[in-house]
Write a protein that binds this DNA or RNA. Structure first.
Lengths: 243, 243
DNA sequence: CGTAGCTTTGATGTAGGTCAAGAAATGTGG
DNA sequence: CCACATTTCTTGACCTACATCAAAGCTACG
């Protein structure tokens, strides 16, 4: 794939107009392509001098383990997303990352990243923007878990996933392919798997959405948006914000 | 105050060694000093072309409102912290920010910030690092609310605050001054104010810590760390990480 | 075609919410 | 420096959303 057509470049290009120099710097960063199988951690907590990755295809989840053996999933990385930026900046990973589908990713070495930032500040700004977008999602998740009911936060999360996938052309208004199990959903939303199951049944019986057979289908998109108090604007940005 | 002695410069200097050029760029960024009284929002959701701020003194809380009138506090900004970086990058604020003590802050204009990044990439990297540290805290909060009990997450949060304040010289192992009400604590931790009160009583009666009279006092620091499963490393960084 | 991971459902338990109301602290104007 | 108002804290009684436990039916794929 040409660098300019990669999901990563597409995403960044939504924010800054990248010059050919910027794109050149990106191709340096974006070097070693790797395939990673399901179920083996790509990053694990406490690991030193961890590389970062840019996801080309597949889904990854970033999570933290707690002493009791419970897990909290913090975020998912989808095609075009950066994985492990914090691990590079802090020199130590503070979380784990696990592919939940087979993944193709490009390894980004810390030096390359920092050199690219120094050489092309616009790229640094673009990466900062992408990191901020991810943080905005984590924040929205925090709000969900803190103050929304199980049903609201499930709906909210599934809408958010849809919006992200739409950005990279993997979803439309009717729904999207979704490889998540109810266990993963539970660990994302701070609920038990049993309760997630009941919530999903309720959403299905209310003709709001169907989560089944590896697919999310919205039956009544507007009603789901209303239920979840979903802000459609927050992941949409018209054109490049920075010229 | 000399720029080099500001809490902001101190914090960034912990990450990158800033050259005099970097410091010069910072003084451009770090320009208009303002005083803000308690209880008037500095940033509010939906506001366009919002400035960002660097806090010189005082505490600010960033929060989101939900339709039911409930509130989730996402983070606190303490002296040296950046406020509203996302608002600048996205051109629209996605949250509110409210001083909970009188605040002195320097306004950072979007242009100045972006110019500084272009002129001195090291500064951009440093700001990216600071933003990542803040995100790490939001993540830790998410984990708390998702998977820790009320007692654990309260302990965790109070330890984290202590660690942050220690970085800017406002806390030691015995405790710190803390202007938060139990209502603020509740909205931070996704609990009700009534329950926070019970949790604090329990922590007090177990001789773990006292939250009273605008002060947090640790009676048995080690026990609190153990209870909260607090990772002391994650906010400590020995020296500049990036040379 | 067996076995391991998912999904579904029922029964029961509990952490934390809500409501209510008094006590203490804090602020404000005279 | 006091009286009054307002917020903040504290506690008790009761309730509910979600967890836990248990067990049966699915899917899938080696």
């Amino acid at each position: 794939m040409d660098i300019q057509d990669s999901p990563f470049a597409r995403k960044l290009a939504a924010f800054v107009q990248l010059s050919s120099a910027d794109i050149g710097a990106m191709s340096d960063v974006y070097k070693r392509r790797r395939k990673v199988p399901v179920g083996r951690d790509m990053v694990y907590q406490g690991q030193k001098d961890q590389a970062a990755y840019i996801i080309a295809s597949g889904w990854v989840c970033s999570y933290k383990m707690l002493p009791g053996g419970t897990r909290q999933i913090v975020d998912f990385q989808l095609p075009g997303d950066f994985l492990g930026l914090r691990s590079v900046l802090f020199r130590t990973a503070d979380h784990n990352a696990l592919p939940i589908t087979p993944v193709e990713a490009s390894e980004v070495l810390p030096e390359d990243l920092l050199n690219a930032f120094t050489a092309t500040p616009r790229l640094a700004t673009a990466v900062l923007w992408a990191a901020s977008r991810d943080e905005a999602m984590v924040v929205e998740n925090l709000v969900s878990i803190g103050r929304r009911t199980a049903t609201e936060r499930t709906a909210h999360f599934l809408l958010e996933l849809g919006a992200r996938l739409k950005l990279v052309g993997l979803a439309d208004k009717t729904g999207y392919k979704c490889p998540l199990s109810q266990y993963l959903l539970a660990d994302t939303l701070g609920l038990s798997a049993v309760h997630i199951n009941r919530v999903l049944r309720e959403l299905r019986e209310e003709n709001l959405l169907i989560f089944q057979g590896g697919r999310v289908t919205f039956l009544n998109f507007e009603a789901v948006v209303a239920l979840a108090d979903f802000d459609r604007a927050y992941l949409d940005h018209d054109g490049p914000l920075l010229r």
